[in-house]
Amino acid sequence: MKKEFFQVEGLTKKFGGLTAVDHVSFAVHRDEVVGLIGPNGAGKSTLVKIIMGILKPDSGSIRFQGKEIRGKNPWDIVNMGIAGTFQNTRPFRRMPIIANVMVACLAPRGRRRGEWVKRVEAKAKDALEFAGISDLALEPAAHLSHGDLKRLEIARAIATEPELLILDEPFGGLNPVETELLAKSIRRLHRGGRFGRLHSEGMGMIIIEHKLSELMKIVDRVIVLHFGQIIATGTPQEIVENPAVIEAYLGKEGA
């Protein structure tokens, strides 16, 4: 059997009486962009937080490139090659943008021994260039607009040179033009290549998003979560036609 790239099995997380994530199992291949959708409170963000090691699951396993990552610390997970952005952007507010990204470049994963700060800075600049906000490099993060903060989050995530990138609502609060720009960047990231000093062989991606029409354009496969359980998986086309999904989003017909 081929070794799975990323695999979640029987993952469960309870908050008191509420089961936020209920025996979720799925796999992602390296050459895939997977969309994760579901109504509010379906457990999407909880799932991401578990994968990133912020929350500890009650049971189940998470395997990445053949290694169990459940129960590891966030920094270990980042250094194994998974990076995530979060729904609420959280920059280091009192640092310039460039320093924000440089911090991510310091992770042992992206770091080369004996590298000087100057080189780290150049690398961070490339990540900003890629995200399209290099002209703002010296602004303090507190001055950025919402859309630019989203870009900063992406720059920080790719600065760790991940192999699996998890984006939690990358389009949230962006206008249509910004959304389209970002969608393009995401496709480009997925294809991989060389972005200045950053190198990527193309990364697997999981994208959580509410703007379904935008999401459907960039993903290969969609997983639908409802009350913590997976109710459907399939291509974007299959998903929009799936009655169970329509019901989860809109309620039963006539109800």
């Binding site: 610390n73 920094w75 959280r90 310091l106």
Partner: peptide
């Protein structure tokens, strides 16, 4: 500034 975010960027 923010130890959780630093943590998420691979900082021990």
């Amino acid at each position: 500034q923010d130890k959780e975010v630093a943590n998420l960027m691979g900082m021990d």
